[in-house]
Amino acid sequence: MARKTPEVNASSTADIAFLLLVFFLVTTTMDVDSGIYRKLPPIPENQDIKNAPKSKPRNVLLVRINYTNLLQVGGNQMDISRLKDKVKEFITNPNDDKNLSEKKFKDIPLLGRKAVSKGVVSLQSDVGTSYEMYIKVQDVLATAFVELKDEVSMANWGKTFADLNEEQQEAIKKLVPTAVSEAEPKKMGGK
């Protein structure tokens, strides 16, 4: 008969595991990096900014934040709570108003020929503008475009944008591009 092998003492495994656990608890963090994703415009190759393609004034909604964190939208002072609706109205232009953005017909996969707004929201901030306010405005702009995308998705497929498949999402992105431009910094007022 084979001799019985003595059992290996496993009581220290727990200690080893605890050590590892404590090490990971100390050296790692839980927070997931999340943020508002934007693409910066590349620096124009020829330093001449005057030659850069310009949009027509009616296609640009100028959003400016001054150093006291006041908001000016298209020339008028406005409270941040009204900005979202203003942006949505500017982009969709439901009554074909001459002062709001133009539309251009484009062929879009899955959807056919549709009117795409040529409107761009241009965001300008001052040296003294607080970052918190800037992010708030960026957030409102992002919300406006997400809601626009959702509305279009609902109208076409009866689902929200997030529930669409990848191909459909691409189509919607072409139909409602997130058109937020961060303007060339300009010195205005402040110090």
């Binding site: 994703y37 693409k39 415009p41 040296v127 003294g128 918190e132 800037y134 992010i135 910094p185």
Partner: peptide, 26 residues
């Protein structure tokens, strides 16, 4: 609580370095 002045400066530097993908962490 940061002012936009320094943030704009960083953004300009990033554009010069052609690091154009940016995420404002919130």
């Amino acid at each position: 609580a940061t002012k936009m002045g320094i943030v704009t400066d960083i953004k300009q530097e990033l554009r010069k370095a052609s690091a154009l993908k940016i995420s404002y962490s919130v």
